[in-house]
Simulated scan of single mutants.
Amino acid sequence: METSMVVGVDGSDSSLEAVDWAVDEAARRGLPLRLVYASRWERYEGGRPSFSTDRPAEELMAEHIIASCAERARLRNPEVKVSGEVMADDAVSALLREGPEAGVLITGSRGRSELAGLLLGSVSLTVAARAECPVIVVRGSEQNRRGAFGRVVVGVGDSAKGSDAVGFALSEAEARGCALEAVRAWRCPAHEHVDHPLLADDAARVHEEQASAELTDALREAVREHPRVDVHRRPVEGSAHKVLVEKSAGADLIVVGALRRHGHFGLQLGRVAHTLLHHSECPVAVVPQRG
């Protein structure tokens, strides 16, 4: 089966932004685009008289949304192969079921049924936390979404557990023809704080050098596979979630890993990924890592 990019749509402004972003992404990667609308409209069919030939309004709306999103995608780039399907299921289950066959799942940041004040919709959060393939939540300003900065950022944590995220980020940077900024946050532990400024500077320098070495280790093999990508290593002092939110302001895409624990079915997101999904100023890619 041909790998495709799958976009969850529901007719909201956020999902239309996700469609536009996904079309551009599919064009860069030379992949087909599959649009999925999920709704449990069939549960209401029993309320209609058995002799009625009318179709449920929700079913008709679903078909209209898929058709209009497909037309929008084709108008944006006629070269991208686009297909669509309406699924009689809840959105999370439908998208998670697509995961094993998809190259990536893409969602907007908030659906049409979500409260306007929410930072992130429940569907996007749950899919990002549980999918078996990379998930990209399209959010942020228009200039970030359209790639105005020419930069992909990847948060590098434990080098032994972050290789998938690093590889995905390098592939994204290569497809876009842009630079990759690899960021490793570091902090001096509280027990190492000392009163003398020279000793404090020495302690900070040790931790910064260690973070730099960890960046080099995490990137070494993946960089060999993408020699054309201009990679910038950035050890930065601070909490990882705060550092990466700040970096997202000048990025087209930010990439982080999320550990998947076998047999664990709850939300599997660390603090960094969770914070970015709620506060990033650019699209966020969450890449699963088995542990």
Rank of each mutant, 00 (worst) to 15 (best):
E246I: 09
H207D: 12
R220M: 12
R224Y: 13
E209I: 06
E221S: 15
V229N: 05
G250M: 07
R224D: 08
H207S: 15
H207F: 14
R234L: 12
E225T: 13
V243L: 01
R234G: 04
V236I: 10
A211F: 01
L277R: 00
A240E: 04
A218N: 01
A273K: 00
V245N: 09
L244I: 10
L267R: 11
H264E: 10
V256R: 01
A251W: 00
L276P: 06
V243M: 05
Q268T: 07
S239Y: 11
Q210H: 15
L269N: 05
L267N: 10
L219H: 04
D252L: 03
E225I: 09
H274E: 09
R260L: 09
L253M: 04
P235I: 00
A258I: 03
V231H: 02
S212D: 11
P227V: 05
H278I: 07
A251M: 12
K242N: 08
D217K: 15
V243W: 05
L215T: 01
G238P: 05
R234S: 09
L259I: 14
D217W: 08
V223K: 04
G270Q: 05
V231A: 14
V231F: 04
G266R: 00
E208F: 10
E225F: 09
P227N: 10
H264N: 14
G250S: 13
R271L: 15
L276T: 02
L219I: 00
R220C: 12
A222M: 08
L219Y: 05
